[in-house]
Structures are given as structure tokens and as C-alpha cells.
Design a protein around this nucleic acid. Structure first.
Lengths: 136, 136
DNA sequence: ATAATTGCAAAGGATTTGCAATGCA
DNA sequence: TGCATTGCAAATCCTTTGCAATTAT
């Protein structure tokens, strides 16, 4: 009936989860959980923040989205399909994507040095943005 | 008397802050705030966790230490002088340094693409460690 | 009917902060 | 003495969770 190893959980459709995922796919701003909640609240007035977090977790478990801890106090989210955007520049008041070509060499280098099987990487740059360099 | 731009704060010696910094310098395990607290508590029984956090913040402001958000719920800390160790492999149950030679090319690439002044970067690898690949 | 999902509110964990007491300069 | 620093506890912030009601299959 049920798998010996992993208890199979049946998935049910949920409007909330579906819309949360769609919203994450519709932006490349890597929004926070709270932003997703605020965005969806007018459309689904009954929506609660707990539901958003619960569904984000489910979407992560099902490998639909990725969560980034980027130094601010909020985690940021993006669909798993956004593969190229895995790099950031962090300035005091700006976070920006860096679209560098994916560098597979880094992965094999790290694999060699550590003995790990390396799946992916993410590069966080720190620096100063144009606005901070020359304030208007 | 005081600077127009930034109010000059005078630094006073504090045994607590001094020891916190020394402890961070004495290990390359990038410990958490709580670990630092536990390490120091026997030596300074009056020490409180709030003081640890306050001093970590001060040490960061004074560019003595760096804080890493590495995906776990704890931030991890290291002295600013540890420059080469800016890369990690994250597995489910292990965090490991990756001692890759510093790659300045990445910085200039990112600077070119973004227009930011790039100061530094950090690479987070994700993968599977040896223990997880072949459990004993 | 069964079990996943929801909303709500309360709990959780890491970090910050207000305040009176302490200690360095 | 003046003001940074401390310890304590309460507060804060983001996130998770327990539970009864709802909803999808």
C-alpha cells in the first residue's frame, strides 16, 4: 500500500499554492514571502501568511522553487527554472542580479578539493552600486 | 567637537569584546553567536548573550569580522582577515570550507556587467558530502 | 469518506533593544 | 565625571506549528 522507504503523500490541487507559484514565476525580483502574501491577499482575502509559508515549503520540497538567503533578514524566492540568475551583488541599498555565464569549472574544482559531489553554486558579490558611488 | 557628518563614537576597551574577537580568530570553524557565548561563559560567568550579539555587531561595523548567512538558521562568523575561506559546500549535515584560490576575474566580470564597484565575493556550493554518498 | 489544505492564533528561534547598573578613560 | 558597555529581560522579526474547519479527489 505505501512505500517502505518514503510515505507517499498525495498531492491535491490548491488555488493558493498554484497562485503562489505563478506569482513567483511572473517576476524576477526574487520576492520575499511577505511580498507574495501582500500580492495575493487582495485576490484571496482569506489567505493567511501561514499558508504562504507552508506552500513555499511544499514547493521547495517538490523542487519547484528555490530559496535564497541573501544577507537581508528575509529569505528570497524564485522558481527553480531560473537557473542563470544565481549571482547577486549586494550593496547597502540594492540587490541586483548578475547574469554571468554558468561556470561549470568552479563546480569541478570544488568537487576535486572537497570530495563532495557538487550540484550547483551561487556567487554573492559585495560592492558599491552606482548610486552610492555618486549620489545624485 | 563632533564631526558634522558622522558622530564620532569613542571606543573603550571591553574585556568581553576583546575575548569574543580573540575566540573568532582562534578557530576556523566559523562559529555561531551562540557557540561563542557558550565558549566564553565559563570564563566570564556574568556574560550575557545580548552582549555577545551587541559586540559582534560592533566588530562588524568596525570591519573586524564578517558574518556569513549560509542557509542554516544561524549566522556564522569569522574574522575579516580570513580572506581565502569564502567558499562553502553545503550538504544536509555538513558545512565545509573550500579553499579555492581567490578568483579576481570573477570580480571584474561582475563589475563590468553591473557597473558596481565590486569588493569581494563568496561562492556557495551545494552538493552531497562523502558520508551522504556512501553512508557507513 | 479520506486526507490534504486552510485560517487563525499561538509558539518558536535567532537577534535586537530598553533600562538601570557598571566600568573604562 | 561622562559616556560606552554590561546584564537582564522583554520585545521584535521572520517562520513554523497545532487545531478545528474546509476542500479536493
Amino acid at each position: 500500500m505505501s512505500n517502505q522507504e518514503t510515505l507517499q503523500v498525495q498531492h491535491k490541487n490548491s488555488k493558493q499554492r498554484e497562485r503562489i507559484f505563478q506569482i513567483l514565476c511572473s517576476t524576477d525580483s526574487h520576492p520575499t514571502a511577505d511580498w507574495v502574501y501582500a500580492k495575493l491577499k487582495p485576490e484571496i482575502p482569506s489567505l493567511s501568511l501561514g499558508t504562504v509559508y507552508r506552500n513555499l515549503r511544499i514547493l521547495m520540497e517538490r523542487a519547484k522553487i528555490r530559496r535564497l538567503e541573501n544577507g537581508s533578514s528575509f529569505d528570497r524566492l524564485m522558481p527553480i527554472s531560473m537557473r542563470i540568475i544565481i549571482s547577486f551583488v549586494n550593496c547597502v541599498n540594492q540587490v541586483m542580479d548578475v547574469e554571468l555565464p554558468h561556470n561549470e569549472t568552479l563546480n569541478s574544482e570544488a568537487a576535486r578539493v572537497t570530495g563532495f559531489q557538487i550540484d550547483d553554486h551561487r556567487i554573492d558579490f559585495t560592492g558599491i552600486c552606482k548610486d552610492c558611488l555618486s549620489p545624485s
